[in-house]
């Protein structure tokens, strides 16, 4: 475990980990570059990696991780589409293989043991399956205090990949930002003594230097 790295990373928040293309988003030239603010949202980008059945199962898994409660959950926030896009376009080939193998192993297991797809199982059964996966993965460096997103753990097991993509997709989404976190993009002031109540959420955005 590398606490030092975790803490160091705080100092770089919003820095080198956070990156993707502007002009390169659609492989386009600079002339075609548009402001990100009027571009597609992260849950609107198309991908064609999964079948309809796989999408149902993936959605059910994301919903186990971040369920709808008194506030919206992963499906409400468009997280499954984000995950599919990230698996297809962001994970390296080796990481994508880990994801697909892990994902298909669950599907196979559900059909063999329950004669049902994952999405058709009772929520408690779904939770048991994912908890079991987490138990088996619990010694992965992914769980280390030091694991911030700047250094993606390349050999993280499927369950860790799934949680990471679900959480990033959810708390970065418009639904997550506005209905679960607090979204205040144009504060017009700085108040350093602003109170924090016990039930108050974080801001959706962070300062970057």
């Amino acid at each position: 475990m590398d606490r030092r790295f975790f803490l160091q990373a705080l100092t770089m928040l919003g820095g080198s980990y956070a990156t993707a293309a502007i002009a390169g988003l659609a492989g386009s030239s600079q002339a075609a570059a548009k402001p990100l603010a009027i571009g597609p949202s992260i849950d609107e980008l198309p991908s064609d990696l999964f079948s309809e059945q796989e999408r149902k199962d993936l959605s059910a898994m994301a919903e186990v991780i971040i369920p709808r409660t008194e506030s919206p959950g992963a499906i409400d926030a468009g997280v499954p589409k984000f995950i599919e896009y990230m698996v297809q376009n962001w994970l390296s080939e080796a990481e994508q293989q880990i994801f697909l193998e892990g994902f298909r192993a669950i599907q196979k297991y559900c059909l063999a043991d329950f004669s049902k797809s994952f999405s058709a199982l009772h929520p408690n059964q779904q939770l048991d399956i994912l908890e079991d996966l987490e138990d088996k993965a619990s010694d992965s460096p992914w769980y280390d205090f030091a694991n911030v997103q700047r250094q993606y753990i390349e050999d993280a097991p499927f369950i860790c990949q799934l949680k990471e993509l679900t959480i990033f997709g959810f708390y970065s989404s418009e639904v997550g930002a506005k209905q679960v976190l607090r979204h205040d993009p144009m504060p017009m002031q700085f108040d350093g003594e602003y109170a924090l109540g016990e039930e108050d959420s974080s801001w959706s955005m962070i300062r970057t230097m």
Binding site: A21, I42, D43, M86, G169, S173, M205
Partner: peptide
């Protein structure tokens, strides 16, 4: 806003 940043602002 965060939902418009490619890859949810994870490094490309």
């Amino acid at each position: 806003p965060p939902w418009k940043i490619p890859f949810a602002n994870k490094a490309d």
